[in-house]
Write a protein that binds this DNA or RNA. Structure first.
Lengths: 201, 201
DNA sequence: CTAGTTCGGGAACGTTCGCTCCCATACGTC
DNA sequence: GACGTATGGGAGCGAACGTTCCCGAACTAG
């Protein structure tokens, strides 16, 4: 109809996600966003309505990319369940090194900052958490079914423990804790899944 | 020398701690604090220098009271180690119910919000974390020594796992997760410490 | 080419931010 | 009782906040 955009909306959301992820919602001003996305206030507001809506867009984008990639890495594809879990968790606490470090998980950060007050945010964070829990559950069930995990494994307990551990790991990664200690944590929680002495054929 | 205070400084710190704990640093304005502590800006600044200094006071107060109480509950006093751990963790995720709920841990919240940018805050949160880790370590060592825990228990791994789980539990408590699931998590991590089939004499 | 529409740029809105200053007041000291 | 000092109250500082408005520019549709 009229004059086309000079910027890529999706690219702007990506950069907004990065900024919100690092600094959080309250510590990120609209002018910070404008500088990072190279958008004037008018363009930003015409495109994304307001700061809060843009934040929700960023949260949705994160879930559709980073979170989705995480769940994808939980697919076994025939590999041993324990190894899948271990690689997945190691990746979770080191993947930010593809950029800078110490960002933690955008969903976890957001849940602690806004989850108690903002219903829209809360619905999204809880949904993201639930996806992870279900992915863990089906992975463990598969492992128990094919003999890689003990038959008497307490599924509920194992899911809760793994999920809670992951949240803790994400917090510790943002806090800049020693990666070696995080790796120790990961090995410990996997060992806690129970000792099937030998791998089945 | 002159006119005495009409307010109790310690009481003001307590109320400030409560407010910062619930809302976080950035979402709490000086005027919010003034209303809660019943202090005018002039009194607040004369007494506490500025917002950031008051926040550090609040963080120190939290460590000296709530955190200290938590470490205290890790003292065995002759009770079984597993039970001490279980009661301690259950208390951690339910103690906010002495007021309202869903506040999580002030140190954890602060570490995720400001730990990456504020050095003064970071030093305090890391110190608090280290105290907890050491308390867990000595408790586990005691349990291993007196036969309540397996002799071949991996101390480093168990400490990291317990500590990380606690961080995750605190996040989940703030996120308002079902207490029953948190209890399931706690039972799972304690069972993971290893099975000494019977209690020694 | 013209009309219509959305764009980018930027000034500026009103509010709230963290913080300072001033002054009457109330207390301890002598 | 008079003095000196720190208090509580509150107006108000400059800056930054989220947001809106206006404008010339740039593009499409007819």
């Amino acid at each position: 109809m009229a004059r086309p955009r000079q910027f890529d909306e999706q690219d702007a959301v990506i950069k907004a996600t990065d900024l919100f992820w690092r600094r959080g919602y309250n510590a990120t001003s609209v002018r910070d966003l404008g500088a990072e996305l190279k958008l004037t206030p008018s363009s930003l507001y015409r495109t994304f309505t307001d700061k809060h809506t843009l934040f929700l867009r960023a949260l949705d984008h994160y879930r559709a990319t980073d979170s989705a990639q995480a769940e994808q890495r939980l697919d076994t594809a025939g590999r041993p369940v324990r190894q899948v879990l271990r690689d997945w968790m190691l990746w979770l606490v080191s993947c930010p090194s593809d950029g800078e470090s110490g960002r933690g998980c955008f969903v976890v950060n957001t849940a602690t900052e806004l989850g108690t007050t903002d219903a829209h945010v809360r619905r999204r964070t809880e949904a993201a958490f639930e996806v992870t829990r279900q992915a863990l559950r089906s992975l463990l069930r598969e492992g128990r079914h094919n003999g890689e995990l003990p038959l008497d494994l307490d599924l509920d307990g194992a899911v809760e423990l793994l999920f809670t551990t992951v949240l803790g790991l994400r917090v510790r990664e943002r806090a800049g804790h020693d990666p070696a200690r995080l790796a120790t944590t990961i090995d410990a929680v996997i060992q806690a899944l129970g000792s099937t002495s030998a791998q089945p054929s």
